[in-house]
Write a protein that binds this DNA or RNA. Structure first.
Lengths: 360, 360
DNA sequence: ATGAAAGCGCTAACAC
DNA sequence: GTGTTAGCGCTTTCAT
């Protein structure tokens, strides 16, 4: 059934080495020989067994990507970008989702050392620094998303404080003063939304506007329903913000839905800025202004980090000496020091008030 | 630095077989021995090399899923469900997207025979029957999505004609008579939207309503922008439908946006039904009525199809003739005949007119 | 330029 | 119950 290198070699009357040479495009093969072997390959319909190749080379060509939730379009779009970026380096992507649960995140970081993968790109939500400090196995690990851990792994995230400040500045320039922040999580300061909340505070302070903590609305999760609940809670508490900066677009969308239900107009009564630049945000009754992280850059940098460290490991191994004297050098810094990489972002300002003009 | 079975065996002073027995939870091991080996495993931090195991067993525990586009929330959500369904069978998922391009779809079906995967779940958009007829390699292939090919592969899709008829019937019962269909593709009748268009025609005919072909709007793609363009074209052509049945929710959302821009009210002026049950559809200014395919069932059936055929192949091929002699041709059917599986669907009727009540 | 042979790390006969 | 050993299919020195 399954035809192997040896079968091809026998069929062509040559050694396996020669067939291997042809398959791997080794340059020093005579054209005649190459053709003969190629014919045998075609005759038998030979396909190399990648698993065997991987075992031999110690590489699989697969990198894993673990995001919280594919149902969140941000992560879905990011996953698509990672797949494309990986393909550019001849890598395929094993996808997993953690549902933002710490145990699942932990499982991913620990389990992947035994997996058939060369490296892992992880977007943690709940994971703590100490979970990672224990070490994560043999392959390179790169963290994406806004949390910052002081750990020896590459970390890729936009400057969330600056991005949040940009969003809040935009609302201030619109003349708004009671700017709510939707998407705080009370339990731990290291939560994902913390940096954006910090940005909100910093920008208000810089402009001399009082940061009213009553306008900070906590959320249970990061989806539309959570945004709706947060906005409803805010309004039920008697707050009347004139602007909303939401942790992400989904929360903003949920909040806008509630405002619509309660007869508040966006942006006249309440201006809204989200985060993530979901396509979805462009097609509501009101086009959502949003902070747009450069997803493609994030994806590309993450993949390049993995690929680079893999290559670095190779160089180091083949050269023997040199290296920065990192004894066991497994898992951590195996191709240079860890880096903080900062892709760009942009404020997509497009809070158009559709429908009104057309209606006259 | 990688510690292997042999290292553990030496460290524990036993044979590799014994270590392997412990690792694989082989029952007939004395507790004392088991503990001794386990300690050696812990001491050395041994992790089994899955690649080697895979090579040996001929299985990788990985199935591939290829969808058109992760940016489409329907496919993103489906991918999440497939990952969960696969995890229930101890499989992981390699994800790819074809961008709905025939060459990419073809590449996936052909390339996967050489991949490190046990099977493939493919949602084709452009692929033709003859592309698949050529054969696809060694592992099981299962097709999902509405296209029907008369080919020996399992195929999983809801009854699209019945689902479309349900949607149109709903609009007819609302008293609408000029029901547009958004999402036709003129080029080939085997295109994805064909069955839904058929359902539209069939239901109108059954109710004695003239199917006005001028109300059938073609699209370039399946995204929001395509729905917006199609709706705009329809209106620009002077058509005034009182209802819209869209091929999917994204097209419906794009169309609603255009209606909003032109002062048409949903659902008063134009009632809308979409398809896919995206969460997004529940959070617009108007909650979108939609046909909801049972995504989890689709995912589960697809995974079970692969897993089942893999198991079947095992039973059949347990006589692995090696060495001398003529290899008796191992047949094509590897686990039973191909099946058509039909998960359910439901009409999610929730075209509420929010905002008015609250405002009134 | 091509061939012979030694494993990569693991599992599963088959012995003891 | 535990040890020995032969490969899974491939790449890769080391010869020739």
């Amino acid at each position: 059934m399954r035809v192997s290198l040896k079968d091809v070699a026998e069929h062509a009357g040559v050694s396996v080495k020669t067939v291997s040479n042809v398959v791997n495009k080794y340059p020093h093969v005579t054209p005649a020989m190459r053709e003969k072997v190629q014919r045998a390959i075609d005759d038998l319909g030979y396909r190399p067994n990648l698993t065997a190749r991987h075992l031999r080379k110690g590489r699989t060509g697969i990198i894993a990507l673990a995001v919280p939730e594919l149902g969140n379009p941000y992560f879905a779009e990011l996953a698509g970008d990672v797949i494309d970026a990986a393909a550019a380096h001849d890598y395929t992507v094993l996808l997993d989702h953690t549902q933002g649960r710490r145990e699942r995140e932990l499982l991913v970081t620990q389990g992947f050392q035994a997996r058939v993968i060369d490296g892992l790109i992880l977007n943690p939500l709940e994971l703590e620094a100490e979970d990672l400090a224990a070490g994560t196995g043999s392959g390179p690990l790169v963290l994406i998303g806004e949390r910052s851990y002081d750990l020896p792994y590459d970390h890729i995230a936009i400057d969330n404080i600056a991005a949040a400040r940009t969003a809040v500045r935009h609302l201030l320039e619109l003349g708004r003063r009671r700017i709510a922040f939707l998407g705080a999580r009370g339990d731990r300061p290291s939560q994902p939304s913390h940096l954006r909340l910090l940005g909100w505070q910093a920008e208000l302070a810089a402009r001399g506007v009082t940061a009213d903590e009553a306008l900070v609305a906590p959320v249970e999760g990061w989806d539309r329903a959570d945004g709706a609940a947060a906005m409803a809670a805010l309004l039920d508490a008697g707050q009347r913000p004139d602007a909303v900066f939401a942790y992400n677009d989904l929360i903003a969308i949920g909040a806008m839905r509630v405002m619509s239900e309660r007869g508040l107009r966006v942006p006249e009564d309440v201006a809204v800025v989200g985060f993530d630049d979901l396509t979805e945000g462009r097609y509501g009754a009101v086009t959502l202004t949003t902070v747009a992280p450069d997803k493609k850059a994030i994806a590309r940098l993450a993949v390049e980090s993995i690929v680079g460290r893999l290559a670095g490991k190779n160089d180091e191994a083949s050269r023997g000496g040199d290296g920065s004297g990192d004894g066991d050098g497994i898992g951590r810094r195996e191709g240079g020091h860890s880096r903080e990489l900062r892709p760009g972002f942009a404020l997509m300002e497009r809070e158009s008030t559709l429908g009104r003009a057309a209606r006259g």
